[in-house]
Each structure stands twice: as structure tokens, then as C-alpha cells.
Design a protein around this nucleic acid. Structure first.
Lengths: 211, 211, 211, 211
DNA sequence: AGATAACCGAGACGGTACGTCTCGTCTTGAT
DNA sequence: ATCAAGACGAGACGTACCGTCTCGGTTATCT
């Protein structure tokens, strides 16, 4: 979602293909060079576009990379495998597969780092990347409740709290294993992780946050 | 652990105070400017040192910041509070408190990002920062087993696997909540997280794959 | 004298007022910004005209400024004051007054500079600006000969040479004093200059170029 | 005369050869490209020097070109040919020869143009280029007075005024013929010009205002 | 005591990328 | 065919840091 042009119906319209070319070039540059050696001039050249065109649409490297990486996560899907454990394992594996790609690794982590000092950037990341995935947690949880694998949740605030917790635990563990531990997120690890998570959540609502 | 001088006993020895001044200046610059706007020239000026002196001891920005941030985690301690849940909660809160400091946030995340394309840097981080904390997991787990809160572990490989899993889950969840979700790691969240983690781990080895 | 449209009688005719608006805007921009900071985009905006319109009529900055400046010199007139000295003084003062205006200074000098590497531009300047003033030299000289203040000239080639010399001396001295010396061309200076010039020319044809 | 370093005896001293290389590269670029297409990046490349080195010593294109061109005029000498007319003709021919070189034409005119809106630049030009030549007028005039070719001058203020006038007339006429008229300053033209000038100056002080 | 050697500060050096500006062209819809 | 509007590819601008180098001068240990 590049910067919008100030509403006007006159003048030459922006090239529709340029956006796609720029985002693709950004991902290619991330793969080859990584975040810190990626330059906007190089991205422009790869995209066959002038630097000005790029700056007209994105405020800087951070915003550009957020958009370039966000597209990668659109392919995530919740498999309907019949059991909660299998659903979780499937989505975690998909997520890990995306995160293993170098453009995702370099790019996502870098913008998260930058976001520690830039609230607008953090919002952009949450909107473009994180909140779009949260639907997986919500949907998976509701399916499991229909199947009776998880107790029904009546308090919506508590449900939201639990969803946030699940999300932090799933995304956090996968990211940490991939990027910090540097170990692969393989099926064995996913089974062990899912087992702990589900067993932990099983009695969750019985003794709510009050513990 | 700056670059060693090539063994020689002649010549003027390196200033002992310069190292400390440089690391402190690096943390100060991280707080004020964040990773991306931190420059080595500025660090040198803050430390009252010439750029040459800095480059003589560290290969670059990455290595310098790893060392500057690693010192922050030396203060982590495992509280002996009598129960596994309280131990975990205590150490998680400590960890979150350090991670909430801007120099840790900016610095640690940034070098982890850089490490995605630099194996030597990843090793340096694991050695300086991560492995030093893993003792907390090992020690906490062993205490809990002595108290009968966790089943004893006979297979050392499985024990190692479990320790890694715990570490990824704890560190990952805290980091994700702090940096991505942007929410505080307060006592309420820690209680909920610990509850899920412990309940998940409780039957772990008893029914390894039973689900 | 903008670029002509390729002969055609169909389509929308060019706006007649646009030319005048553009030349006036050019002079205004020269006053405010000077040659080097004058941009065609800015001129177009000032004139309430699109850049395209401007480029359709002039090849570039140089040609535009020549036309804008040339108009300034149309107001030069040879006063009929009865004596050659007074005629010259009058016209030199007029010329100096125009040259003192910032749009003339910046603009004229700049295009002359550009013309050192562009023969077409030099021709344009000579046609638009210089030759139009030479009539003053011719006319003044002929009047003075009628009055007996200058000896009659029989050889037309020698006459042309002398006219060129006079023109270089008058224009050169005024320009140099105004722009290089940075001193005002006031009545005192003009009297001194005219005295030297006339006394020098008085015996000119008695001992022609042979010396 | 590049920008001076803030007085300090520490640090690496400036490269002595860089200045000469930069000025020579500037002249070469003026010859090839002319003023308007000359870029500082290109000059730096030609000189085998970084752009920063160039900006450390000169404030911009204008100042650099003034210095580059000023060096050209150092070779001017007043020939001692025994007669005032011959002296003048000699120096005018030398001056015209320098001015005919493309680096002098483009460069000098351009900075004079820029100086119409920049007083500091005008002072720099006068100091570096103009005043250094004025010695020729002073010295030639004094020699001619010794030889009795010009009447002695008692009033120093009037002498200064006359010198300024001579200078404006000589430099102005040569510059105008070379750059505006676009005609060569050959021996014939110089003889004619010198004749007019000398005859005009001959009675100058004898009948100060008689006309 | 003197020589030797690595250190120190300062700051200039050749580079590279930045984000902005202007160029002259092109593409719209409307006149 | 012209117009206003504005996006486009191109490339120079002047600045900021990079990591290296070259100075004069300062401590140390080793003769």
C-alpha cells in the first residue's frame, strides 16, 4: 500500500506495473544482499524505474520492505485437517517455511528492529503482517470449539487475551528457533511444540488468568 | 571481548579504560539514536577516543554492539522462590525488564537481524548472549525435578531437546510480545503464560506422543 | 520569437496570451532567482501554464531567456540632442540603465556565456539583441557627419570596421564597469568615457587602420 | 586559494598535490564540457580525488572555477617595447590570447555572471583575477609618463579614476569583441583600438572637462 | 639512559549511498 | 492540435559515514 497520490483525476496516472516491479525487485535484493546492504538506488535499477518513482510511493526503506515482505504471508492458509493439533502443526510449518526464506528473514526482522523506535512503522507492520495472520488463530480456535476440543469461551475479553497469548507463543517460538537458535523448524520440533501448547491450553479457561 | 593484539610484550599497552568507555558510549548511543542511526564516529567521540582506537579493537558496528548488549544480561539471576511457577515467573519478568530497555531492544534485535546473513556473528551472539542464559533453564528444570514438580529425565538427548524447546518458547514469547505486539510483559501476562507452559510441560515425558 | 508550429490549420490554436505571460514570468524569475536558480518548471507555474506548453515553444532555457531579455532593449532611443557627445552620453546612460536591471544583468550575461559553446545561440543573441542596437551607432555617426563633427567616410568597409570598433568599445566598457568592476555608470563616468572615445575617433580616418 | 583548514597542527595534513590536480581537472573539464555541463563529481573523478576532498576545499562550483581560471592570467607580462602604443598592443594581444582559450571563455564569463547576484563571489573575482592585472595599467602608464608620452598626473584620485577607466575600456572591448561579437582580436583590430584609445587619452588631463 | 615499538588523538583520504531537485519527455482527460 | 496536470527515466546535487591512512606525540618494555 504505497503512498497515495493527493486526490486528483488530472495528470498522468501512476504506472500500475511499477509497484509490482518495485516490490519484486525489493525481495530479490533482500535475497541477494540482505537488509543492511540493500539500497534504494539498486532496487530502482532492478525494477527498471527511477529513484524518484520509488520515493514518490514509499517514504523510505522501512516502509518499502514492510510492503514487500507482507505479500509473502498472504499465502498462509489454515488447513482443515480435522484435529486441532494437526491444524496447528500445519499452519506452524507453513509459517516456518515462509520465515525460512531469506527475504522474509532479513526483511521482517529488520523492520521489526526499526519499529522499536518508530511507532508508525510498528502500526504498519501490525496492520500489514501480523493482524492478517491473526485470523488463523481465531478461526482455528473456533473450529476446535465446535469440535469440542477446546471449551467454549463466553467472555470475549478473555478470548482476545488468550488469542494474543497464543499468537505470541506460536510466532515467538518459531521466530526464535529460526533466527536466534538457528535450528530448523522441522516436523519433530513442531510436534513437540504443539503438544506442549495444546496441553497447556486445555485447562486454560478452567482457571482463568487469575491462576 | 575485543580483538586481541598480536602477541607482543613491547610497545605501549592498550588503554584499559578505553574498552569500558567505548561500550558505555555504545549503549548510550543506542538509547539516544537507535541502531540504524548509531555511527562509529559518534561512539568514538562520546567515548573520548579516536575512531582508529575503536577499529583496532572491534571489526565493526555489529561486533561492537553484541559486546555492548551482552553485558546487560549478566545481571539475570534465577530466584529460589520454592516453586517452579514462581521461579519461571521471576526470571521471565527479569528478562522482560532488560528487554524493555531501549539499548537492549534496538541493539539485540539488530544484531540478530544481521546474523541472519553472517554465521560468525550468529556464533558470537549465541556465545555471548544466549548460551549464558541457558543455564537458567537447566538449573530451574533440575530444581523442579528435585522438588518433584517435573518428572525426572533419563534420556540426556531428550532433556536437551526439551531445554531447547523451553528456551525458544520463553524467549520467543517474551520477545514477540515486547517487540512485535508492543504490549507490556506484566505480571498478569506472565502468570497466564507460565500456566500454559507448565501445564503443557507437566505430562511431557510421561506420554511422549500420546497427545 | 518562439518555435513555429508545423504548418497546420486543424486543432486548437495556440493561446496568444501564453507567450507574453511566459516571457514576463521569465523576467520575474530572473529578478528573484537569477539565471542559475531559474527553472523552467517554476517559470511555467508563474505563467499559469504547463511545462509542455513552454517546451512546445522554446527549445530550452537559453532560447527562452534570450527572448525575454531582448524585449528589454527595444526601448533604447537615440536622443537628438544636437551634439555628438551629448548623443553618445544619452544613449550610454540609457544602455547602462537597462543593464543595471537584475533581469538584464543575470539573463544577458548568462546567455552570452552559454553562447561561447553554442553557435546557434550566439546567432540568436546577435540577431535579437546586438544588431538591433547597432542602428544607434550607425545613425549617430551619420548625424555627426552631417553636423561636421566627424569626417565623412567614403570606404564602406572601413566604415563598418569603425562601427564595429565603436560598438565593442561602448558596450564593452559599460558592461565591464557594471558587471566586473561593480561600479555605477553615472554621469561623471560617462562624460570621461565619451571624452576619450570622441577625441580618439576624431582623427581616426586621417590615419586609417594603417596607423 | 582553497578554504583554509581550521588552524590545527594535528591530524593528517592535506595532500599538497590534490589542489593542483583539482584545478587542472577543472580546466580540462571546462574545455571539454563548458561551464554548464561541468559537474563537481566529474572534476573529482578526473583529478583522482573524492568528491568530499573537493568540497572540503572549495565551497562550490563558482569558487573552484574562479581559482582554476585565475591561474591562467598569471602569465600576463607587460612587454617593454619602448613605446606606449606597442606596450598596449602587446598586452592586449596577450590578454586576448588567454581569453580565446575555451576554459577562460566559459569559466570567466560564467563566474562573472554568477557574481551579479553574489557579492562575495565578485570580491573573489576582483581579488584573484582583476586586481592582479591592474598592475599592467599602472606600470604601463607610469612608463609612458617617464617617456613623456603621457602628461604627468599630479592628482592621485584623478589618476586612479583614469586607470579604472582605461581598464574598463581595454578589458571591456576585448571581452566584448571576443565573446559577444565573436570576432578575433587580431593585430589589425588591436592597432585600430590602440590608436583610438591613445589619441583619446592624449589630451585627457590637459583639458579635463573642456570636451 | 636510550632505543624501539605499539599505542594514542586528530583529521584528511577515496568511496558509496543518501534523499532531493531539475531536466525534458510522456500520458492522461478535457477543450 | 492544444491545454493543465502530473508521473516518468535520468542524473547531478551536497551531505553523511564508511573504513583506511598519515601525521605528531605518548607510554611502555627491552637493551
Amino acid at each position: 500500500m504505497p503512498i497515495r497520490s493527493p486526490a486528483s483525476r488530472t495528470g498522468r496516472p501512476r504506472s500500475a506495473t511499477a509497484d509490482a516491479a518495485i516490490l519484486a525487485a525489493t525481495r530479490a535484493a533482500l535475497v541477494e544482499l540482505g537488509w543492511s546492504k540493500l539500497t534504494l538506488g539498486d532496487v530502482a535499477t532492478r525494477a527498471g524505474v527511477a529513484k524518484t518513482t520509488l520515493y514518490r510511493r514509499w517514504a523510505g526503506k522501512n516502509e518499502l520492505v514492510v510492503d514487500a515482505v507482507a505479500e509473502l504471508f498472504d499465502e498462509l492458509e489454515l488447513p482443515d485437517s480435522g484435529s486441532l493439533a494437526a491444524d496447528i502443526e500445519g499452519v506452524v510449518l507453513q509459517f516456518a517455511a515462509i520465515l525460512a526464506r531469506p527475504e522474509a528473514k532479513s526483511g521482517l526482522m529488520a523492520v521489526v528492529t526499526e519499529a522499536t523506535r518508530d511507532d508508525a512503522l510498528r502500526s504498519r507492520i501490525r496492520a500489514s503482517v501480523v493482524d492478517r495472520q491473526k485470523r488463523l488463530v481465531v478461526e482455528g480456535r473456533s473450529r476446535a470449539q465446535e469440535r469440542g476440543e477446546l471449551p467454549p469461551e463466553t467472555d470475549p475479553a478473555a478470548a482476545s487475551r488468550t488469542e494474543d497469548l497464543i499468537f505470541d507463543m506460536v510466532a515467538g517460538a518459531v521466530v526464535h528457533r529460526t533466527l536466534v537458535s538457528g535450528e530448523p523448524v522441522d516436523e519433530e520440533w513442531v510436534r513437540g511444540f504443539t503438544l506442549v501448547l495444546l496441553r497447556g491450553l486445555a485447562g486454560e479457561t478452567a482457571h482463568p488468568a487469575a491462576g
